Structures are given as structure tokens and as C-alpha cells.
Simulated assay, not measured.
Amino acid sequence: MAVLSRLFALALLAASPATAQTDPVHLELNALHPRDGACQMVFVAQNDSGADLERLVLEAVLFDPDGRVAALTLLDMQDLPAGRMRVRSFEIAGLACDQVSRLLINGVSACEPEGPGCAQPLALESRVPVEVLQ
């Protein structure tokens, strides 16, 4: 009987909202467009964390095909409402799109308000031949 009550207690803990995992913020590198002396990077963001984000700024590192750091930048994703998709575009001056082989999300520079959307790792994808990782 004690074993059954322990199993029941564990099942209740696993189902409680306090321990439930929230879904992450999804970030997809959707397109690269060459611009005059720059590379325009287009991202699609989907906030599935269940909480509105008023601001999300990511530290990004771009690597060239030889694995060298080509650029360091901040990606200000602005506001990301819960359950909504947003498209954000950034121009990286002095960098040709064909010279970007990897994009590392090095960290979070700002995330407001603190909560589920800031606590989870990002879910990353790429629709272009650039590896996206964190």
C-alpha cells in the first residue's frame, strides 16, 4: 500500500503546473538576402512559452566557411507575444551572405519580463544552408 501511495504522489507531482515544462521560443533562420555590402538575415520567431515577452535580445556570432568568427552582433527580436509568430530582419554590414556558414546564439543579452519565456533554451532551426546552434 505504501508503494501505491508513493506512486500516486509522484504522479501528482509530475502533473502539477509548477513542474510542467513550458514550450520554448522557436527561432528559425528563414532567409538570407545579399544587400549592398551587407547580408540581410530574416528570422521567424514563435513564442510558445505561454508568456508574452516584451523584449528579447540575443548575442549572435557568425562564422565564415573556414570556422573563423566573421561578426559579433546583437539580434533585438523586440516583443514576442505568446502564441504569435513574428518576422524580424537584420542587416549585417560588411558581410556577404555566402560567407556565413554557422550562426551561434551565444547567449541572451536581455529578456523581459523574467519568466518562462526567458528560462527555456531556444528551439533553433534553419531553412538556409547555415547551421544555427546555441
Rank of each mutant, 00 (worst) to 15 (best):
A71D: 11
P34T: 01
V25F: 03
D64T: 04
L12M: 15
S89V: 09
Q99M: 13
A14V: 08
Q120C: 03
A60Y: 02
L62E: 01
G115K: 05
Q46C: 03
R55S: 08
L122M: 08
E125S: 15
P116I: 04
R84Q: 11
L75I: 06
L58T: 03
A20D: 07
V130Y: 05
S109D: 15
V57H: 04
V25D: 02
P34C: 07
V69W: 02
A15V: 04
I105V: 13
A31L: 04
L7F: 07
L27T: 11
V57S: 09
L4A: 15
V87T: 10
L104R: 12
V130Q: 07
G37E: 03
Q40Y: 01
S89M: 10
G67H: 03
G83Y: 05
L75T: 02
A96W: 04
Q134D: 14
E131D: 15
V108E: 15
V25G: 04
L104A: 14
L29K: 02
M77G: 03
R6L: 12
L10C: 07
P34F: 06
R127S: 14
G37V: 01
A11F: 08
T22K: 10
C118N: 06
L10N: 14
E28H: 06
E54H: 12
P34N: 09
L56Y: 04
L29N: 08
G107P: 01
L29F: 06
E59F: 09
R35P: 01
F63Q: 06
F90W: 10
L95V: 15
E125M: 13
S49Y: 11
R102M: 00
V61I: 14
R68Q: 14
I92N: 02
Q99A: 13
S16V: 06
D23E: 13
A82R: 12
F63I: 03
A119T: 07
G115N: 07
E59Q: 11
D23R: 10
V132K: 09
P113I: 12
P24Q: 00
A51K: 14
L104Y: 12
V61D: 07
G37P: 08
T19C: 02
D98R: 10
P81K: 09
A20G: 03
